[in-house]
Amino acid sequence: MAYALQQLINGLTLGSMYGLIAIGYTMVYGIIGMINFAHGDIFMVSAFIAVTAFTLLAAADVSSIPLALTFVLIVSIFFTSAYGWAVERIAYRPLRGSTRLAPLISAIGMSIFLQNTVQLTQGARVKPIPPVIEGGFEVWSTPDFTVQVGWSQLLIIVITVIMMFAFTWLITQTPFGRQQRSCEQDRTMASLLGINVDRTISFTFMLGASLAAVAGVMVTVYYGVIDFYIGFLAGIKAFTAAVLGGIGSLPGAMLGGLLIGLIESFWSAYLWAEYKDVATFAILCLVLMLRPSGLLGRPEVEKV
């Protein structure tokens, strides 16, 4: 029982990160209907930015953890959203309105490009940083097993909850959110009503990238080691999460992320750890067979 609780906590931590990345996928899909394959690599870039920022802070002898975290988050969000913007501008905007597959291929190319850029400029070796947040507290202690929650885990869950609230507010209450949702429903109509569609799409990409940046900082804090290849698997998992929750649905993305995180940690704990990715995909197939539009997705209405 205690062991299961520990897995629950680990799964939630992992799931929060997947969920944050998944939101980027789902938003982009909702607004321009394409799979942004480079999103996982944007997340990877943000993790590298975070490592550089943490190292800079260490060199400057900043010892206050909250200060350091805030600084790293801001820096990472700023640069990563610039990357999100640039990727959209270079690789996707010229292809808007062409076939559905063209932006997908361009995105795959962008993903390969980003991975290799980082490999070339930052080196192919793994980057370890000293633990930023250490320790934790015991929740429950039984004779066989002690359930521990690391401060970093708590931090990740708390930040994810805060981000979710902020994000929901942004989408439902602000003018930008209204524009974003209107573009999602009907881009032509939105542009007729005086909404700058190009700018809204750019903002969407930047927003998705900033959430990925938060996830990137968290991964750096949580695992303390990154390499240029982490974007691929994280991206695929997050996209799976987005599809699982129903692509285009924001709460669905978070739900899907948490589910994938939980499945992964429980599967690795009780069954075979090496087949945890198989489990993720198998469950995805199962869900899609039973509910083809995901858990919270709206079924597509087809008009003839």
Partner: peptide, 13 residues
């Protein structure tokens, strides 16, 4: 691979 990725994007665009 850098060239490869860039070529994919450029040809597509």
């Amino acid at each position: 691979m850098l060239l490869f990725g860039a070529a994919m994007v450029l040809i597509m665009v």
